[in-house]
Simulated assay, not measured.
Amino acid sequence: MTFETLTIDGAPAVRLQGPHGDSVTALLRGGQVISWIDASGTERLYCSPLSPLAGPQAVRGGVPVIFPQFSGRGPLMRHGFARTRDWALADTPAGAAHPTLVMRMEHSAAETALWAHDCVCTLAVALEAAGLRITLAVHNTGSSALSFHAALHTYLEVGDVTQATLTGVLPQGEVLSLAEPIDHLFESVPGPFALRSPASALDMAHEGFTDAVVWNPGPQAVIADLPAGGYARFLCVEAASVGVPVQLAPGAHWQGCQYLVTAA
């Protein structure tokens, strides 16, 4: 296992190299994973080449951390502030079973009247034998209860989304076709999920999160930081808690994880 800090296109970053040739790279801005290369040398995440890594906008691709607000469901900026804030490297837990990168963000109630709560968010990114596990944890360090949405807005490389299928979000094992644009919150879906496409065979599971969001804008969408035809390269499958916001008492902890496993 090797660990290095680096700068990519002007953005401070960190890279963790696993024992099997796999690696994960994350930006300290947003605590955002932007690359996961599996043991076969295959990049499993999509990151738009037109999206500046150093900001000021959120990076389009990888795994943006959505917190404490999903989309426009509240008074804050779209998808909340976590994905544009600076995170700090933190110590890996003693005795961690797998190579793990940990980042941490603190938020003070004094920072914005729109979300006046004290909390600490921690993101742990672990390279496991056959996949990637990302765990988001929230600790309410204030004296009042807080309510939030959370999601890992994962952009998965699929090669051609119109040829991709996803199972696990529809009842009775029905297959979700992705030939058309989609932007849908699937509430109370426990998973697991299976994504099959020309460029990707991934099995996915989540814990702690209650919902899944599936998004692809389709060919008609005009998105400034996405190249022409770029929509076809990715599918977002997000582990999320949105339908019913998380309620956290003073001093309490919450965590949710998303596990991506390469499939045959």
Rank of each mutant, 00 (worst) to 15 (best):
I34P: 11
P93W: 00
P49W: 05
L76I: 02
T92E: 15
P64M: 07
S40D: 15
F70I: 11
L50K: 13
G74D: 12
P64V: 01
L53W: 04
S48R: 10
C47Y: 01
A82P: 01
I37Q: 15
A96R: 06
A58T: 12
A116M: 10
T84R: 09
M103Q: 15
A97H: 11
A94V: 14
L101K: 12
V65D: 00
F81P: 03
T100Y: 04
H79E: 08
V63Y: 06
T100K: 08
G80D: 02
I37F: 00
I66E: 02
A113P: 14
E43S: 13
Q69T: 09
A116F: 13
A94H: 14
I37K: 15
T42E: 14
T84F: 01
R78M: 12
S35K: 10
W36T: 08
L45S: 02
P68N: 02
M77Y: 00
D86F: 12
W36V: 06
V59L: 08
L50R: 14
I37G: 00
G72Q: 15
A94F: 03
W115N: 06
P75Q: 06
G80T: 07
T42C: 13
A94P: 12
D91N: 09
L50S: 13
P68I: 04
I34H: 07
E43M: 01
G74P: 11
M103E: 09
G95V: 07
Q57G: 11
R83L: 00
L76V: 02
P52N: 07
V33T: 12
A39D: 13
L89Y: 10
G55F: 10
A90N: 08
L45H: 05
A39V: 10
M103I: 09
P56Y: 07
S40A: 15
P49A: 08
S35L: 14
A90L: 04
L101S: 11
R44M: 13
Y46I: 03
R44P: 12
R83G: 00
F67N: 01
P93H: 05
A90Y: 03
H79G: 05
R73Q: 15
R44A: 02
W115G: 07
A116P: 15
V33Y: 03
C47W: 06
V65E: 00
A90E: 08
R60F: 04
S35P: 13
S48N: 10
G55T: 07
V102Y: 01
E111V: 10
R104D: 02
S40K: 05
V65N: 00
L101F: 12
F67Y: 15
D91H: 09
S51W: 08
D38H: 06
D91F: 00
A110Q: 14
G80P: 05
G55V: 10
L101Q: 11
T100P: 00
W87F: 10
T92H: 07
R78V: 11
P68T: 03
S48Y: 11
G61D: 01
P99R: 13
D38K: 09
W115M: 07
G80R: 02
W115C: 06
P93L: 03
F70Q: 07
R83D: 00
V65S: 03
L45Q: 03
I34N: 06
E106I: 09
M103P: 02
I66F: 01
V33I: 13
L53Y: 07
A97S: 15
R78C: 00
S35N: 13
A82T: 02
M103A: 13
R73G: 05
G41Y: 06
P52D: 01
V102K: 04
G61Q: 06
A39L: 06
